[in-house]
């Protein structure tokens, strides 16, 4: 465990806490894409199946359990508790365009042609694009609450921090994970536009608004 990865994981944890904080304080899921949240549940469930047969560390198991339960809880909040504040009519990204290619890619690129390894690969590819419905929704509405943008920034920072972690592991531990690295770079790149507006507007105290 190096610091990049630790800070990356902490950023991921912070993003989920920010998301829950946003929902609880505004008592609303407005501005959040249900599709993105449902994709994250899929990502965590397919990747963390190894909880049942592969022990890495207590830290690892606790984090995995937290990510699965919290993401399911967010779905519950969106579909049940705060359902009236959810607006599916602006959450229009076609997720089948993401799921199909991810299935295909995981069948081609995996470390072993086993059910568990293909699912792992699938989850890596799916995570890299899971944020797209959310970013698409942001693009459509053109604005967002500050707290929602902090959530997205923490989520993007988590992915960005994994890149120096991989560079560190390559040089210091002689470890490389080409599938995770490729997908991780794609995932981080998707946040570039968002980060530009976040740094130039939200962190300067202005509203998150996209140019018309």
């Amino acid at each position: 465990m190096n610091l990049f990865r630790l800070f990356g994981d902490m950023s991921h944890l912070a993003s989920i806490l920010l998301l829950l904080y946003k929902i609880q304080t505004t008592r609303s899921v407005r501005g959040l894409s249900f599709k993105t949240q449902a994709l994250y549940v899929t990502v965590f469930v397919t990747r963390y199946l190894d909880l049942f047969y592969d022990y890495v560390s207590l830290y690892n198991s606790v984090m995995k359990t937290f990510f699965i339960t919290s993401s399911c809880y967010v779905l519950y909040l969106m579909k049940k508790k705060y359902r009236p504040t959810n607006d599916p009519s602006i959450d229009t990204f076609r997720v089948e365009y993401l799921l199909g290619p991810c299935v295909l890619l995981s069948l081609i690129f995996n470390y072993r042609f086993t059910f568990a390894e293909i699912l792992w690969s699938f989850s890596i590819f799916l995570e890299s694009v899971a944020i797209l419905p959310q970013l698409f929704m942001l693009q459509r509405t053109g604005e967002a609450e500050a707290i929602t943008t902090h959530y997205l920034a923490a989520l993007g920072a988590y992915r960005a921090l994994y890149i120096p972690n991989w560079i560190y592991r390559y040089w210091m531990e002689d470890q490389v994970d080409p599938i995770a690295v490729t997908a991780g770079i794609v995932q981080t790149a998707l946040y570039v536009d968002f980060f530009y507006v976040y740094f130039t507007k939200v962190l300067q105290g202005q509203r998150f608004e996209l140019p018309a």
């Binding site: 994981d9 990747r47 890495v56 690892n60 995995k64 592991r169 002689d174 994970d177 080409p178 995770a180």
Partner: peptide
């Protein structure tokens, strides 16, 4: 040469 990682990341 670097070896492939175990799945020890989150």
């Amino acid at each position: 040469d670097p070896v492939e990682t175990k799945h020890d990341e989150l």
